[in-house]
């Protein structure tokens, strides 16, 4: 009897160890899946384009890119997990609130140069996957200069006042009467990909004119004229097939074989070319379904 006790103990211990190691392997692979999903969503969210400085040796997502708008110049923050200069101290709630409510961890309002106006529709699940990916990156210590704004915009209270007038915090609601591809496309275009932030014209104090969705913005950032991408045959892309749209988002090629360049090029590089073909087709499906509107 006495001889069997250690034997049993060994068996039990071995079994327990095996069980525990199995759990930790499963947990690690679930984490990897989450990080990988987050990496994909960070591309779909177009984060890299704005949160990376324009220099050959810039570290992606360490911020410092200058967004020149009619309301001043904004320097994008460092979103690597550095605890002092990045977002390393952010909780899940801090992260989700930034996207859903447009508020920083101190509860102050962001200026809408950070397109939370679009991101507000993103699911909590997607946002936390993005956070998991960002927190898997090497922290980069990099101080970002303060925004260069006119006096009337120097306080975040101005941003708060803007939110009260123009911001509607709401999650994406699928339209059951449409296909799954259309709904996926709508989610990517309106929310994660925030296409309207450049392609939709703006009215008073920079608020997006949603009834003119994606009809182009002649006064885009950096003085660039942003094209109408509704299905209008004259001003928009009504002559493009779904394949043409998908292919443009993949390679940047216009249907006639030209490569236009401009700010869309970095969107293609950092965002749309990194998506699956299915997601690009979903985007094409949604865009092609927009009401054709002439440019104003």
């Amino acid at each position: 009897m006495r001889a069997r006790a250690p034997f049993l103990t060994t068996i039990v211990t071995a079994g327990l160890l095996f069980y525990l190691s199995d759990i930790s392997v499963a947990a690690a692979s679930a984490d990897e899946t989450l990080v990988e999903r987050g990496r994909y969503l960070v591309h779909a969210g177009g984060c890299i384009t704005c949160h990376t400085e324009e220099s050959a040796d810039a570290v992606p997502l360490a911020g410092g890119y200058a967004v020149k708008s009619p309301f001043g110049t904004f320097y994008t923050p460092n979103i690597t997990p550095d605890k002092e200069t990045g977002i390393g101290n952010w909780s899940d709630e801090d992260f989700v609130r930034a996207f859903h409510q447009g508020l920083n961890p101190d509860g102050e309002a962001y200026f809408p140069a950070f397109p939370y106006t679009s991101y507000t529709g993103a699911t909590r699940e997607d946002l936390l996957a993005m956070k998991a990916y960002l927190f898997s990156l090497v922290p980069v210590r990099k101080e970002i200069p303060p925004h260069d704004l006119p006096v009337y915009m120097s306080s975040r209270l101005a941003a708060r006042a803007w939110q009260l007038s123009y911001f509607d915090a709401a999650r994406f609601e699928p339209d059951e009467s449409r296909s799954a591809a259309w709904n996926r496309g709508a989610y990517l275009v309106r929310h994660l990909g925030h296409c309207g932030e450049c392609h939709t014209p703006r009215g008073t104090l920079g608020a997006l004119l949603h009834d003119r969705e994606l009809t182009g913005n002649p006064d885009g950032a950096d003085g660039e004229s942003i094209p109408n991408i509704t299905a209008d045959r004259k001003d928009g892309i009504g002559r493009w097939s779904l394949s043409d749209i998908e292919y443009f988002l993949d390679l940047g090629m216009l249907p006639d074989g030209d490569f236009a360049g401009g700010s869309m090029s970095s969107v293609i590089e950092d965002n749309t070319s990194k998506l699956t073909r299915e997601d690009r087709m979903a985007i094409a499906t949604y865009i092609a379904s927009l009401v054709p509107l002439e440019s104003e």
């Binding site: 390679l251 090629m253 030209d258 490569f259 236009a260 360049g261 401009g262 700010s263 090029s265 293609i268």
Partner: peptide
């Protein structure tokens, strides 16, 4: 894909952005 990348890369840097 590489052809497209080289066209796009060149136009980004060396051509006047098109509307």
């Amino acid at each position: 894909r590489d052809v497209g990348g080289s066209c796009r890369g060149c136009h980004d840097t060396f051509r006047v952005p098109q509307d």
